[in-house]
Design a protein around this nucleic acid. Sequence first.
DNA 1: TGGTTGACCACTA
DNA 2: CTAGTGGCCAACC
Length: 119
Amino acid sequence: MADSSSTTSPFFDEVYRVVQNIPRGYVATYGQVAALAGSPRAARYVGFALHSNPDPSLTPCHRVVFRDGSLSPGYAFGGPERQRELLEDEGVCFKMPRTQENAGAPGWVVDFDKSAWQA
DNA sequence: TGGTTGACCACTA
DNA sequence: CTAGTGGCCAACC
């Protein structure tokens, strides 16, 4: 009941639900969220769903990062540096990749070895 | 109204 | 090992 006015498809709804289920201090990848949503190849739409971001307070996009550990280039919270602070403030560990050019953030990527979230 | 793009990942050759 | 393509859905013009 309570249709929750879900005009979006169940896939998008699952994406929001999975992202909201990410515990504080951990991060998940687009592919992981997509797989949990029911489509391991729909990672593109996970990012699109987060861009839609109907509830930024309920959908911590900053906890969703690339498979490389880098952050989204078009972050809509205030900047990649802002996202790094948010994650660090939550206890997420960061590390410096071998190639800074690979990092959307200024030379910092999430350390999946410590902060990788597992459903 | 329809067509194209878009915060990506995994698989195949 | 590297390179290239496909897939999936919604929103925008």
